[in-house]
Design a protein around this nucleic acid. Structure first.
Ligand SMILES: [Mn+2]
Ligand SMILES: [Mn+2]
Ligand SMILES: [Mn+2]
Ligand SMILES: [Mn+2]
Lengths: 219, 219
DNA sequence: ATTCAAATTTAGTCACAACGAAATTTGATT
DNA sequence: AATCAAATTTCGTTGTGACTAAATTTGAAT
């Protein structure tokens, strides 16, 4: 069997959901929702992936990637993030738009081009959103981070990562000159999911609950 | 109906065959051979293209692109050639390999990326093989050339263009340092499809029948 | 005018990846 | 233990683009 773009997107989605969910099995529904297909479609594909040996599947229980499945997911994620870095750095595509471009290009990038791009960028370790780029030999650096949400008044840290899924957020941050790598200090934090007041490079910004939850930081 | 990659490749192939064949209708067989599919498959697609209004089709006679079909072909050709130029210039992909890469990327290039690439290259007019790049508004510059084959001893000219289809030939020329844009003089020409002896930049090269026929020149 | 080979089209099939509707399983609530 | 809603799977269908094998049409040679 061939590794189609659909198979790549499914393994990638399973990988991402597995990360979020503490190594638990990924449910068919979660997969369907993430990919924007019906549960029936996801179920059919899950069966196929199991047949290809990319996931282990317990009926009615969910799937987990096998070593083979993980390898494919990491390969596609490497393509995706290298492309994001490349589009951003070499072509000046704004960081809220690189994701959608990479989503299709990732399936079509040859190994040769992957190499050339990686070389040209000097083998970058992170994409424009701060997501780590798997290595050539399929290793994903593990970088524990916490949500900015969880910090308290007085905490200091560095903003390192944010989901590339929501272009709105990315534009909002870009407009305020906040980017991964920036250091900050929490000036104030309201309870009950309230906003975070944080100082980045002298300026104090108000970061609402959803945004603060999406921003990953290290201390 | 959607414009699928398959539809794009078919319109592109019809465009190319139409160019070669003096505006005559393109036969189903020629189309099938060019695309590496069976005549039955090409026939089915021709029917679909006619239904989409991209070609006019006379049964058992062949197809011709409509204005709408030409526009799509030219758009895809622009993508293809811009990508070839970009891969060659900005990423250093050797000119015998840019074609295969562009063949898949062309279907996935967004209009935004097309713009950025064109800008970055300074709106190039030709790809690495000397093929003209259609303009943003879908105009293909007409550049009459003759085959190097047809010249006679003593003729001078400039090598301007060669098909990107045969990587062997491209490597052969690259190895000898011959590239589109180079001037030359025909030193000797043997009859009966014999080789052409031509001097490029001081060096005399022997160019066999097939190669000499593929090389397009202007006087 | 027949004949015939090549070109073209039709008919029937397959793989893929989606869908809605219906059946089944699960696990939580009573 | 019975009930029930949510999750999951199965079933039947669709659309795309390929295939082989079998018609059909064409145009050239007899
Ligand atoms: Mn994708
Ligand atoms: Mn990213
Ligand atoms: Mn193509
Ligand atoms: Mn070319």
């Amino acid at each position: 069997m061939q590794i189609s773009p659909a198979v790549e997107d499914y393994t990638k989605a399973i990988y991402a959901l597995q990360e979020r969910g503490d190594g638990c099995a990924v449910t068919t529904n979660a997969l369907a929702e993430r990919l924007g297909v019906t549960p029936a479609s996801a179920s059919a594909m899950v069966k196929k992936l199991a047949g290809m040996g990319l996931v282990s599947h317990v009926r009615y229980r969910g799937v987990q990637l096998t070593a083979k499945g993980s390898a494919i997911a990491l390969e596609v994620i490497r393509h995706h993030r290298l492309l994001e870095a490349y589009l951003s750095e070499s072509l000046g595509v704004p960081w809220d738009r690189v994701h959608d471009e990479a989503e299709v290009l990732e399936h079509v990038l040859s190994e040769e081009l992957e190499e050339l791009i990686a070389d040209k960028l000097g083998n970058p370790t992170h994409d424009p959103h701060g997501d780590p780029i798997p290595t050539r030999d399929g290793l994903m650096p593990d970088e524990p981070t916490v949500s900015l949400q969880t910090l308290a008044t007085g905490d200091c840290g560095r903003f390192v990562r944010i989901s590339d899924a929501d272009p709105e957020m990315l534009r909002y941050l870009a407009a305020r000159g906040i980017a991964p790598g920036d250091g900050f200090e929490v000036i104030d934090k309201q309870p009950f999911d309230g906003p975070v007041f944080a100082r980045f490079a002298g300026e104090v910004h108000v970061l609402g609950g959803t945004l603060a939850r999406a921003m990953r930081v290290e201390l």
